[in-house]
Design a protein around this nucleic acid. Structure first.
Length: 811
RNA sequence: GCCGCGGUGGCGGAAUGGUUUACGCACAACACUUAAAAUGUUGCGGCCGCAAGGCCAUGUGGGUUCGAAUCCCACCCGCGGCACCA
């Protein structure tokens, strides 16, 4: 019989579905639960090869864990709210719900064609009322625990469309729809206080089994900095401007201070500036810049002096000018800085441009103070100069001493700031979960009663945002008008919807108990499964999704709703799949690989296995359909070995059987270790080496050895392994079997290839007993003819011996 | 710009302080075939050489080491993220 993947794959997918072998029971006696999770997809329309690259190797790992004896739960669902559905509605006139549902139906079928271990009975779809009911309920818990608040926050605003734009819709600072200049406008929106968890989020990272690079990125994103908040008085006024600095040691070098264009001092009616026009103009100009443009070190720094007022340096009483400049951000620190051009490059650039004094107060040399002439700021450590009584103090010590000195005078306090901003969750869009809040003029904002959840997303005809910058929900009178939950008076609903990141910040909890109608998930089920044992998804989520999910878990933990404080114990990232040309896949480039076509041609098993084989899983790379034929040949060869043996065994000598047992045991060891470490590519190559050997030599293989091979193959090519397993006469599924074990004794080598180096260059390889000692090795080598040639007339200065590996003669 | 990652044959990659190029693709020769496909066998980094063998090669330049693709420094190129794409 010929290997016909399409036939056997469909057959086994049906059998697995019917027998429900992947349905996870909450408890199986004698087995440990293992919650295995791949990041759920956004229903964009089609499953692309990138999804496969996430899900196929992940499935190999899940199946491996199952065979190792774990009770594995591997659920799947859809992250279904979001902007593209709304765009499709506007562009094609399809309701976002219809568009999303059609995509889900298609993608669900495509997912099933992969033959994965998914337990579909736990599926979650975030845009369904029975899911977002609990998203809203969780919002209310955040609100009740003081973690949700309303504030004015800048957003991309198109003055011509009178609409808030996503960053994606405002690329290059131009509105996607009408090409006008986008400005940053302050709008009242809901935020989550993630910043109050900054310290915990930072501390707990170290204990996670996550890629180090992801941990570093999260740490940098949180961006903790310790320093001092120092007050600068304003001359002749009773006002003070607090500044935050991590370099209090440079205080004597401060030659001006800078406030952000959004700083409250500029809105204070008591201030009479001498140049108000220039100031207003500058504030308006800076609204046109994105934050990234403002802080880019490549961009020329700009600013305007606030003429008519001066600040006083608390260290020496000196008057310094005050500027506004947009390289200072309002949301970081106090929105004001002390500028020390000699020791900060941004300040240095600014000072050069506006001809401000550069005063050096940290010198690398002491006690001979020969300060270098600066062509850029000196940001390193050194010793203080020109700093009164602190002269000669090391800059490190001075940071503390100056801070403490001012603290005694109540002019400074120790402070920690974070780069992490609070999470802006309001979206002025239709396709999201409505924020369950109601406004009544007398009581301000009130939460919707939990009994009334879900606040259903109404049908509207027009998905374009309103001209007042409100979400399309504002067009539905039926939706807006409601009663105040507190007094029953006429009130209005919040029309903003929630950021879809909220939906995806808790979906992994819902899988544990996806059909629960009374709670977001029962404590018992959460305890059975959470935290997720292995989480697999793209590195593009290194910061935002993963940080938000951690925040959610920590907040719910504090509220007593969950018993753990980290959602994902282990994390791995898959890389990005490129087109065959090594470029990013895109329709316009014409290099898109359609997984359905590949499956039709070669079968799901081959596609799965090729994705594993391509290269390191966390690296991604080009998908070349030509390369897949290698896997296809491998599977055919393996198939033939079972179904169409070339000939009766013609040679079953003891020695050869021993050789093959050795290789088999080595392969078990290699494949086991490689899958555990996500090195799927080298696991596959080990299987290839085994099959090459088996099909070349026509060994007479015992039943057990053949079974072992099938068991090793099962996670990679689950359909073919199942088919051959059954045709060998087994009744139970191969996926219920135990993972094979190896015998270390069989793997041990008696002989090694001893590498002989002279001055680190390989000159010979000698077969030697594996336990050879240094003395024996050097005697063997020095007596060797080839080596003698190299040693002629030279003295051996040193011998380096690496047991079991090499000997290096230094001459 | 800031944070993070990567750069090894014609190509995907293996090797993470000790044999550079495992495994696979492509290519070439041979076998089978009337022929082709499929399959199998062998070869396959560059230069010199009939060969034995030698020299050179892991983005570029420098350093550490008996020994560096691997560690350190500087640079070049590519990729991911940067808070309203998900």
């Amino acid at each position: 019989m010929h290997y016909n993947p399409n036939k056997i794959e469909k057959k086994w997918q049906k059998v697995w579905e019917k027998t429900g072998i992947y349905k996870a029971q909450d408890k199986v006696s004698g087995k440990e639960n293992f919650y295995h999770l791949a990041m759920f997809p956004y229903p964009s329309g089609n499953l692309h090869i990138g999804h496969w690259y996430n899900f196929a190797p992940a499935d190999v790992y899940a199946r491996f864990k199952k065979m190792l004896g774990f009770n594995v739960m591997s659920p799947m669902g859809f992250d279904a709210f979001g902007l593209p559905a709304e765009n499709a509605a506007i562009k094609r006139g399809i309701h976002p719900k219809t568009w999303t549902h059609e995509n889900i139906i298609k993608m669900r079928e495509q997912l099933k064609s992969m033959g994965n271990i998914y337990d579909w009975s736990r599926e979650v779809v975030t845009c369904e009322p029975d899911y977002y009911k609990w998203t809203q309920w969780l919002f209310l818990q955040f609100y009740k625990n003081g973690l949700a608040y309303k504030a004015k926050v800048p957003a991309n605003w198109c003055p011509s469309c009178k609409t808030v734009l996503a960053n994606e819709q405002a690329e290059g600072g131009k509105c996607e729809r009408c090409d006008s200049q986008v400005i940053q406008e302050e709008i009242e929106q809901w935020l989550f206080k993630i910043s109050s968890y900054a310290d915990e989020l930072l501390k707990d990272i170290d204990n996670l089994d996550w890629p180090e690079t992801t941990k570093i990125m999260q740490k940098n994103w949180i961006g903790r900095s310790e320093g001092w908040q120092i007050e600068f008085k304003i001359k002749n006024l009773k006002l003070k401007i607090p500044v935050f600095t991590t370099r209090a040691d440079t205080l004597f070098g401060c030659t001006y201070i800078v406030v952000a264009p959004e700083h409250p001092i500029l809105k204070n009616p008591n201030f009479k500036f001498q140049n108000p026009k220039f100031i207003d103009q500058y504030i308006n100009e800076s609204k046109k810049k994105t934050e990234r443009e403002r802080i880019s070190e490549m961009q020329e720094k700009t600013g305007v002096e606030l003429k008519g007022i001066k600040a006083i340096n608390p260290a020496n009483g000196r008057e310094v000018p005050i500027f506004i400049a947009d390289y200072v951000l309002m949301h970081y620190g106090t929105g004001a800085i002390m500028a020390v051009p000699a020791h900060d490059n941004r300040d240095f650039d600014f000072a050069k441009k506006y001809n401000l004094p550069v005063k050096m107060v940290i010198c690398p040399n002491w006690p001979k103070t020969v300060c270098p002439i600066l062509d850029k700021a000196y940001e390193s450590e050194g010793y203080l100069v020109d700093s009164d009584k602190f002269d000669g103090t090391s800059s490190r010590d001075a940071r503390e001493r100056i801070g403490e000195w001012l603290e005694k005078q109540e002019k400074a306090e120790r402070k920690v700031y974070y780069r992490l901003k609070d999470w802006l969750i309001s979206r002025q869009r239709y396709w999201g979960a409505p924020i369950p809040m109601v406004f009544f003029f007398f009581f301000d904002w009130q939460p919707v009663s939990e009994r009334e959840l879900p606040v259903l997303l109404p049908d509207v005809n027009d998905y374009l945002p309103t001209g007042e910058g409100k979400s399309p929900l504002a067009k539905s009178k039926k939706f807006i008008n409601t009663v105040c939950p507190k007094c029953g008076g006429p009130a209005q609903r919040e029309t903003d919807t929630m950021d879809t990141f909220i939906c995806s910040s808790w979906y992994y909890l819902r899988y544990a108990d996806s059909s629960n109608k009374k709670e977001f998930a029962s404590k018992q089920k959460l305890e059975a499964w959470l935290p997720v044992n292995m989480y697999i998804g793209g590195a593009e989520h290194s910061v935002m999704h993963l940080l938000y999910s951690r925040f959610f878990t920590k907040a719910l933990n504090k509220m007593g709703l969950v018993d753990f404080s980290e959602p994902f114990a282990s994390l791995r990232h898959q890389g990005i799949i490129l087109g065959p040309d090594g470029q990013k896949m895109s329709k316009s480039r014409g290099n898109v690989v359609d997984p359905d076509e590949q499956v039709k041609k070669y079968g799901a098993d081959a596609v799965r296995m090729y994705l594993c084989f391509m290269g390191p899983h966390n690296q991604g790379g080009p998908y070349n359909p030509n390369g897949l034929v290698g896997i296809s040949r491998f599977l055919n060869r393996a198939w033939d070995l079972f179904e169409n043996p070339k000939s009766e065994a013609r040679n079953s000598k003891q020695i050869q059987n021993f050789e093959i047992q050795k290789l088999l045991n080595k392969t078990i060891k290699k494949v086991t270790e490689d899958i555990e470490n996500f090195r799927f590519n080298t696991a596959v190559s080990a299987l290839m080496i085994l099959i090459n050997e088996l099909s070349q030599k026509t060994y007479k293989l015992d039943h057990g050895s053949m079974s072992t091979f099938l068991l090793l193959l099962a996670p990679f090519a689950p359909h073919m392994a199942e088919e051959l397993w059954h045709s060998a006469g087994n009744k139970d599924s191969i996926h219920n079997q135990e993972w094979p074990r190896y015998d270390l004794k069989l793997i041990e080598e008696e002989k090694i290839n001893l590498i002989v180096q002279i001055n680190g260059k390989v000159r010979d390889k000698i077969e030697a007993p594996s336990g050879i000692s240094e003395k024996e090795a050097s005697d063997l080598v020095i007596g060797n003819e080839k080596i003698k040639k190299w040693l002629q007339g030279k003295e051996i200065k040193k011998i380096i011996f690496v047991p079991g590996k090499l000997i290096n003669l230094v001459i």
